[in-house]
Design a protein around this nucleic acid. Structure first.
Lengths: 200, 200
DNA sequence: CGAAACCTTGAGCATGTTCAAAAATCGTGG
DNA sequence: CCACGATTTTTGAACATGCTCAAGGTTTCG
């Protein structure tokens, strides 16, 4: 938490918090709702960098412009931290600087984990590790909240929507999960998922 | 550059600067030589996060232990910055904090670009963007230094060694590059490479 | 010069994609 | 509450990209 330096904004589902190319003059912390942060290739191929859940930050940029789009998947509220104000406060309060650094290091670790996921895991393993990741962040211990579409999951895991759907169906057939509705996955066999997520 | 806070160390080719699990009590800046930073899956699959060239930093960690291995590809010298000393200096000098933040943001942007590369680019596009990336960092404008093995390139691009080799041979057949020796790639048709690297 | 490591090339194969269609779900208005 | 169309998801079959396995060539280094 960055303290009382922010202002609050609401975004409705499907709308953009910022776009690729916009001046990157603020960071955001999600208070409620879920967003996605994506990059695009010129021919439309899309890669979702991260899903941004309550408590997460988004909008860290090294250049002057955002290099990704941030869009709300569900209605969301965010706290906006102007970069100028943060910079100024950080130069007065070293503790804030340390906090920012810690947030950044956390991010970096997460994105590096994704390299392994996208580069070296099979479809099965990617879906399993995605479910485990979302499970960690869900309120209940056995039900995963999945507010994003299959398409979003596909673009997050660098698969096609068909492969995601087929893999989930397979997990269901093997009684590893149940699919009560679109937005939820019930984990029936956590150990099976753990076995598929071969990170050390 | 982090100033006069570091001590110098030399590593010979093939040796480790730190391993997965070692206490992460220092960051490093490469003065000369090339290193690689990798993560492993339990069954041996490997993903190289980044090649670390002179001027680059390595060893940023959010937890107590390194989550990747850093190994020298060529003989290298590095400057070691103890985390404790950096932390202390940063709490006295806000400019240092800002510098660290800038370095971190740079890293983050680079790794995010890799997500797109690994997730959504074809083998051809990955090799092309790798060559362009290395070309930017080579002293000459038309010759790429490639100190790493084909195997390392494969694990960096999440391909197999055979696919890397075949793709390079194809570029050679199409007169996009020449391969004077193992360690060098001569770029004959830069535009053809640019066309393959479809980032906006 | 010889052995070891590395790189290239080829042929067959597998995982995940593409294309197509059916099924389920959602939103809207009567 | 149900009917309707639109959208999303699931399923199937054929296909393609990149992988695996295998062999031959090249470079490196003692």
């Amino acid at each position: 938490m960055l303290g009382p330096l922010g202002s609050i904004a609401a975004i409705s589902a499907g709308h953009e918090l910022f776009r690729q190319g916009d001046p990157a003059d603020a960071w955001y912390r999600v208070a409620s709702g879920v967003l996605r942060s994506c990059r695009l290739l010129s021919d439309g191929r899309r890669q979702i960098d991260s899903f941004i859940l309550p408590g997460d930050y988004v909008g860290f940029e090294s250049g002057r412009a955002y290099s990704s789009v941030a869009e709300a998947i569900t209605p969301a509220t965010v706290v906006r931290y102007s970069r100028a104000r943060i910079d100024q406060s950080a130069s007065e309060d070293p503790a804030l600087g340390r906090l920012l650094l810690a947030i950044m290091l956390n991010h970096l670790g997460a994105v590096r984990g994704r390299l392994l996921q996208l580069g070296r895991m099979t479809a099965e393993e990617r879906v399993a590790s995605f479910l485990l990741e979302m499970l960690e962040r869900s309120p209940r211990e056995d039900i995963v909240d999945v507010p994003m579409s299959r398409n979003d999951i596909a673009d997050y895991l660098a698969l096609t929507i068909e492969t995601v759907s087929r893999t989930l169906s397979m997990f269901k057939r093997d009684a590893i999960i149940a699919l009560p509705d679109r937005q939820h996955v019930a984990v029936l066999d956590r150990k099976a998922l753990d076995r598929l997520d071969r990170r050390d």
